[in-house]
């Protein structure tokens, strides 16, 4: 495992934007009366993205472009030719190179301000726990079920919000969870041998981008909100809303094109968040 970090420009928490930041982010600053405060909150935000593929590339690009403070990129894969139609941070000459490293290098060219950390590995629990400890928000853009269950479990353990996207074939789904809501394992049987991935079903490149940018939009809403706004339960569809506890499914029919959000009910005996978890804990004592 290699970990690289670019030191922050200043060790004190910054309370203002520099002149170049003000110009760089001027089009975002116009969006709200408290645009400066929103931008500063984003500048202090620390985000972890697990998986830098078809979803992770656009999410990272938008967050870094928008001015996120710190981003940890985790991926064990190398760039493949079949990634290039949708994984926009990679170019033909990158084939065979480590994804997370290449992604970080491109993102640094895009915006030198965010601190970027790279984990070029498939993290075990301890490595992932360490990375999670240094972040406020966790984003699952991974391509397999064991990793999704691992991040779900450790997000719950750390009490940190989880924003997740999944695409395969012509399907796209999102889930937004925190310690107050149901967890991913309430819905998904850990023994499911999930074959629904891009290798087996293919993937629509535009749908991957739509899904990633829906996720990025929700992340920016959340990261720029005040702690009070983050904690308040607001109805789905409100401009400041993040529908935690909901599962989103992309559907296209007639005039309704986009994500439909459903409240996810908890499984009371879930082995991760429910009575099953309590029983497992008691058994371990």
């Amino acid at each position: 495992m290699r970990a690289k970090s670019v030191p922050p420009e200043a060790t004190q928490p910054e309370t203002t934007l520099s002149d170049t930041e003000f110009i760089r982010y001027s089009r975002s600053l116009m969006l709200a009366d408290d645009g400066d405060s929103r931008q500063l909150r984003l500048k202090h935000a620390r985000v972890l993205i697990l998986g830098v593929g078809g979803l992770g590339c656009p999410v990272a690009t938008t967050l870094v472009g928008a001015g996120v403070g710190q981003l940890t990129l985790i991926d064990s894969d190398k760039v493949e030719l079949s990634n290039l139609p949708r994984q926009s941070l990679y170019q033909t000459g990158d084939i065979g190179k480590a994804k997370a490293e290449v992604a970080a290098a491109r993102l640094r060219l895009q915006n030198p301000h965010p601190r970027l950390t790279v984990l070029q590995c498939r993290p075990d629990d301890q490595q992932l726990r360490q990375a999670i400890a240094d972040c406020d928000v966790l984003v699952d853009c991974s391509d397999n079920l064991p990793t999704r269950l691992q991040l779900n479990r450790l997000a719950r353990e750390a009490g940190k919000p989880l924003f997740a996207g999944a695409v395969s074939g012509t399907s796209a789904q999102l889930y937004l969870l925190n310690s107050q809501t149901a967890c991913y394992q309430c819905l998904v049987d850990p023994n499911w041998q999930a074959l629904q991935n891009c290798r087996t079903l293919g993937v629509d490149p535009a749908l991957a981008a739509v899904t990633a940018q829906q996720l990025a939009w929700l992340l920016l809403q959340y990261l720029q909100a005040t702690p009070a706004q983050q904690a308040s339960a607001v109805p789905v569809g409100h401009a400041n809303s993040v529908p935690f506890g909901h599962y989103g499914r992309f559907a296209a029919s007639h005039s309704q094109i986009g994500f439909h959000w459903y409240p996810l009910h908890a499984n009371p005996s879930c082995a991760c968040c429910g009575a099953g978890a309590d029983a497992a804990q008691k058994g371990a004592l």
Binding site: G51, G54, G56, D140, G165, A166, A194, C198, S269
Partner: peptide, 29 residues
Amino acid sequence: LLPRAVWAQTALPDSTDHHIEIFQLVAGG
């Protein structure tokens, strides 16, 4: 969205309409 664990206890009384959506979960990215 109801986890499978609660399907057995979830009644479908015929006094009312029920709208059900069924879809495949995906895990790619």
